[in-house]
C-alpha cells in the first residue's frame, strides 16, 4: 500500500495551538515572482514575434534590423540602464543597513539614470521617425517598436513606482509594507535588465 504512515488517533494533534506565523514579505515576494513569470511570457511572445518578423520579406522593402539600431547609441543606453539598476542595488544595500538617506538617494539616482535612458531613446526614435522608419512602415518595424516600447513602458512604470516608494520611505520609514514593496521593485528593475540582456544579442 502506498498509503502514508498511519498516525495513531490517540496521539494526533487536531488543531493548531497558536496561529501560524504570517510571513507577509515572503508571500508577497513569491507572488511577485509569479507575476514576473507571466510578464516574461509576454516578453517572450514579443521576442517570438520579433524573431518571426525579422526577415527580409517582413521588412517589406523597408529598413532592416541593421538600419534601425545604432551600436553607439545602444551602448550608451545600456550603460545608463545598467547604472540605474546599480543605483537601485545601492539603495538595497542602504535598506539592509536601515539607512533611510542611502535608500532615498539610491532611488533618486536610479530615476535620474532611467530618465536619461528614456531621453536618449526618445531622441533616437524621433530620428528614426524622421527617416520614415515608423511602426506602420512594415511588419519588421512594428515588431521592433513593440519590443523596445514595451521595455520603455516597463521603465516608465518603474520610474512611477520608484517615485511612490520615495514618498513612502520618506513618510513611513521601513514598515513591513514598504519593505516588501521595495523588494518587489528591486525584482522589477532587475527583470528589466534581463529583458535588455536578451534584447541586445538579437539586434545585429
Amino acid at each position: 500500500m502506498s498509503q502514508e504512515a498511519y498516525i495513531k488517533p490517540a496521539h494526533a494533534v487536531l488543531w493548531q495551538s497558536h496561529p501560524p506565523g504570517h510571513d507577509v514579505i515572503s508571500t508577497k515576494t513569491l507572488g511577485f515572482w509569479l507575476y514576473l513569470l507571466s510578464d516574461s511570457m509576454i516578453v517572450s511572445s514579443l521576442f517570438a514575434s520579433y524573431l518571426v518578423l525579422n526577415h527580409r520579406v517582413n521588412a517589406a522593402a523597408g529598413p532592416t534590423a541593421g538600419m534601425v539600431v545604432h551600436p553607439v547609441v545602444a551602448f550608451f543606453e545600456t550603460v545608463l540602464l545598467f547604472s540605474g539598476i546599480l543605483a537601485y542595488g545601492f539603495a538595497m544595500v542602504g535598506l539592509k543597513r536601515g539607512d533611510k538617506k542611502a535608500v532615498l538617494s539610491g532611488l533618486a539616482s536610479a530615476i535620474i539614470l532611467a530618465v536619461g535612458f528614456l531621453v536618449i531613446e526618445g531622441v533616437d526614435f524621433a530620428g528614426l521617425a524622421g527617416h520614415g522608419m515608423v511602426p506602420e512602415r512594415s511588419g519588421f518595424l512594428s515588431a521592433f517598436y513593440a519590443l523596445v516600447l514595451y521595455h520603455g513602458a516597463h521603465l516608465v512604470f518603474a520610474i512611477l513606482w520608484t517615485l511612490v516608494m520615495i514618498v513612502q520611505v520618506a513618510r513611513e520609514g521601513f514598515t513591513e509594507n514598504v519593505v516588501y514593496r521595495l523588494l518587489n521593485l528591486k525584482l522589477f528593475w532587475f527583470f528589466r535588465k534581463r529583458f535588455n540582456n536578451y534584447t541586445l544579442p538579437l539586434i545585429p
Binding site: 521588412a59 517589406a60 506602420e136 512594415s138 511588419g139 512594428s142 517598436y145 513593440a146
Partner: peptide
C-alpha cells in the same frame, strides 16, 4: 489591437505582416 488602432503590420496579409 495595435494593428487596429495604430496601423501596424503584425498580422496583416501585406507589408510584412504574418
Amino acid at each position: 489591437s495595435l494593428d487596429r488602432y495604430a496601423g501596424t503590420h503584425f498580422f496583416t496579409p501585406g507589408l510584412g505582416g504574418n
